[in-house]
Amino acid sequence: MNPQVVVSKKLLSDIGRWVYVLEQLYMIHTRDLVKGYRGQEVATPVLINVNIDVGDGEFVAVAGPSGSGKSTLFNILGLLEAPDAGSVVFRGRDVGGLGESERLALRRGHIAYVFRQFNLVDELSVAENVELPLLYLKMKRAERRERLEEALGRFGLGHISRRFPRQLSGLQQQMTALARATVFQPKLLLADEPTGNLNSAGGSAVMEALSAINEAGTTLVLFTNSMQEAQKARRIIQLFDGHVVTDHAHT
């Protein structure tokens, strides 16, 4: 674990006095997280009392079989969905009571996502797909151009930047997705089975790229059902039937 230590100001309720305390600051952490889905007749619990701490700059793998609650946890850590109970704190801020627009403001420019299905916009070229997040950050044209060039270069996409997703191989598509995810230098990258649609060579290339991204300073949470991939992380959280089964560092 690599939590940052910060000084924060707190009100002591019993004596009504402000004191300064030392606190550990995580990139994101959850406390007693509960989430379920209500069908028409039965409610299905998906996450039960999940406590996860992800420190700044960490590479954490969340491993578990289908149905273990990975996707739901992905959405909650990605600030896309709110839990039914418990708290989620992103960079020191409790996001529990926040509305959609406030969550969006926290997400924008800070959290990036990579998916198994790549999810590139078919109507946009490689360069335009990569540039997309910058458009929503109201960035100046010159700066956008600079970041774009840099991202395309980093993932070896320069020569195919004008192509459309349907003209690309699976690996090229995932590399484009990685470029898109990192072009705005996010604090946190959530990757949902990013190698699931690739062959083993492609998978390794993507895992290497992800490691490089993490080494460059971005906190990385990898969701996977492959223990082999999970081994690449420095810490593995195992999820089973909505419970955290193990959470241990790995070297």
Binding site: G78, L80, E100, S101, L104, R107, R108, G109, A112, Y113, N119, L120, V121, D122, E123, L132, P133, Y136, L137, R180
Partner: peptide, 16 residues
């Protein structure tokens, strides 16, 4: 759907 979802993931607000 995919396009809208991707835009939402990458910072598009409802207003946008």
């Amino acid at each position: 759907y995919k396009e809208v979802a991707v835009r939402k993931y990458f910072g598009a607000g409802r207003r946008m």
